[in-house]
Amino acid sequence: MYAQMIKTAHSGVHKREDMTEQERAFQDRIDAGEKIEPRDWMPDDYRATLIRQIGQHAHSEVVGQLPEGNWITRAPTLERKAILLAKVQDEAGHGLYLYSAAETLGESRDELVRLLHEGRMKYSSIFNYPTLNWADIGAVGWLVDGAAIVNQVALQRTSYGPYSRAMVRICKEESFHARQGYSAFMAMALGTPEQKRMAQDALNRMWFPCLMMFGPSDKDSVHSEQSMAWKIKVATNDELRQKYVDQTIPQIEYLGLDLPEAGIVWNEARGHYDFDMPDWSEFFNVLKGNGPCNSDRMADRVNAWEDGAWFRDGLMAHARKARARKMAAE
């Protein structure tokens, strides 16, 4: 998802009998559905795991602006341009809400950004794929934000109060993202034969990278158990992926496009679609930094940060001077 392969800062699950009294009281609060708030006592591993997950989620929102930002000046109409600009601006806000949530745990935003720029933190694998044409932009809003929504709706129930509240706010804005994407994509899929061909191509290319957003299969994801017990994660990768596939197939069918792969079949007995898994070796390779756009994305982020330094510092110097002047006058 926007947070993939988050290593829980502890191996295995804490057993009740091994917990201290404080840890047991903490787990009881979580089991009772209480939210944990910034100044409450929490285990160090809970804090560390949350910082990793929320930080990666925040980085994804910010890096996720790049593939779409690339098309703002090339949008086909002024209306689509205004819409895309508003959507990308929302994503900057999402990054901000999430960095703020991470900061309540005692990690500063600048520090998280530094870790990202040094390659010590990650962002979602999906943003290492290119957006080649306008059909891709519709597909990103519909399919990528669609996948993000499935995950983020679940995370509204996460145990950490500030993270949960950020998710509630983000989910309110996300349905605009998915709907504007579907609307743009629909115009292509129901357009000229050439536009329809572009739409089909975008869907085919984006399908498996979108399924990868949910992370590896549950049987292979070793880190999730303790995170589930702490309700840092509230649903498994496979549950969320299935939900996503089930809701997306009818949307593809409405457009009259071919399904993106042959393994998608309705399974009457399960009441769900069967589908093929992506190639996980590609996923791990992208995470390692070898996706089609990893180096471009990181270079763009680092340059933006460094090129803006004189401006951030200048405003800070101005604020200090103004404060000193005001104090001298008082």
């Binding site: 900061e103 405003l315 604020a319």
Partner: peptide, 11 residues
């Protein structure tokens, strides 16, 4: 409603 970073109150 939330928080943010800024150099001074005006910004």
């Amino acid at each position: 409603v939330g928080s943010l970073h800024a150099p001074d109150a005006e910004l």
